[in-house]
Design a protein around this nucleic acid. Sequence first.
DNA 1: ATGTAC
Length: 502
Amino acid sequence: MTTREFDGIRLEKVREHVWEIPREGEMNVPARVLASESLLEAIGDDDSLQQLKNATHLPGMVEPALCMPDGHQGYGFPVGGVGAIDARTGCISPGAVGYDINCGVRMVRTNLTYDDVRGREEELVDALFEAVPSGLGGGGVVKGTADAVEGALERGVEWAVEAGYGIESDLAHCEDEGRRPDARPEYVSQKAMDRGRNQMGSLGSGNHFLEVQRVTDVFRGDVAEAYGLEEDGIVVLIHCGSRGLGHQTCNDYLRRIEQEHGDLLADLPDKELAAAPAGSELAEEYYGAMGACINFAWVNRQLITHQVRETFGDVFDADPIDDLGMELLYDVAHNIAKKETHEVGVDAEGRPAVGDAAVDRDERELYVHRKGATRAFPAGNEDVPETYREVGQPVIIPGSMGAGSYVLRGGDESMGVSFGSTAHGAGRLMSRTQAKQEFWGGDVQDDLKDGQQIYVKAQSGATIAEEAPGVYKDIDEVIRVSDELGIGDKVARTFPVCNIKG
DNA sequence: ATGTAC
């Protein structure tokens, strides 16, 4: 048997791209890493494996805890982690969702080709930079009145479209149609709402960005056609989340868990995994508040989409919808927990079980935590919008600003292998601190422009250094693993034209 | 990720 060991954690190769940390001690289930040998080396280089192992201690975890091929260490639970926990007997963990609730990415297609934008990159990047608020702190597209914040939290994209910031088809082209049915705005604190108030329609900082891209490769022509993608076509990618509002909400509930459920916390190997027991008031309140933050993040990306459409309309002197065909291709969340029903192994008494103890499979309602992982439902799944149901859910996976991105479709194996999930990006190779020691923002910017005709404009040079292409794993390798496992199939590849950052 | 710290 092929094995690998990192800092005393041993992994056994189950099959190609699947590595298992066997169950031992207090682990409820084994853990699995979905990675090629080279990606596993990168994942084993930080604390991800220990964090993944720790997460198997969470009560009610069913089936192995998973790390996607782009995984790296995060707060308590790895970024790139998927944890499926029984929604009746288990728990829900804010750290396994992430501080940036519904950080996610959407792609807007256009009728433009690369020839239409070549030579006008600087004009375009300047106009977008002007139109889309970015960077730390406040300033949004709309005035965040109490009614606006409330509408966004309660109704998501539906609110934004009714307020004039989108078109009807935007709703269907968004995960959950841009609205979590179980959102409970009353469980979002006043402090969180105050932080979100003047951030409605703002990119933020860190790895968040807005990028104009050209399609360089089409791998599955029929699926690309269903998605409205063609080689040489121009698309726009928007990557951001719920800003201060989601961050505050995560923080609020972590503190409340510490105060109200210290007993559960004491049994966990890492305080950062703090979880509210399923069925508790706190679990219900966090789940409802998180749903509202999810809606807020969707509104955020929707308002930015509106600004992008207006800007393209101005720059190309055309109607963004009728002439430029700027329809939303799809919007995916990659920091989220949702109640979903999946098949899990059960023992003779019908209790969730793994390995030899599992004698049958049965459906269970689970809190599926996807932290830095993207839902990737296959063709035929009823949660895939009707227009895409025959080909599978679009999965948008951004790479670094020097490498480009991928559009995948949910693969036929995703439900059985990864609770209908795949990777969410290239995944960091080093910390932000280390990145700033290795790179200088201005140099990175010059190299991208001179070497690859990629025009980057950012609020802060430090952010460019933190997000330098060399800070990330190889996106092609991440996607290869997803494709070969059959959890997310390659549809098209894009390459950056211009990029704005916080 | 984040009014980059309780």
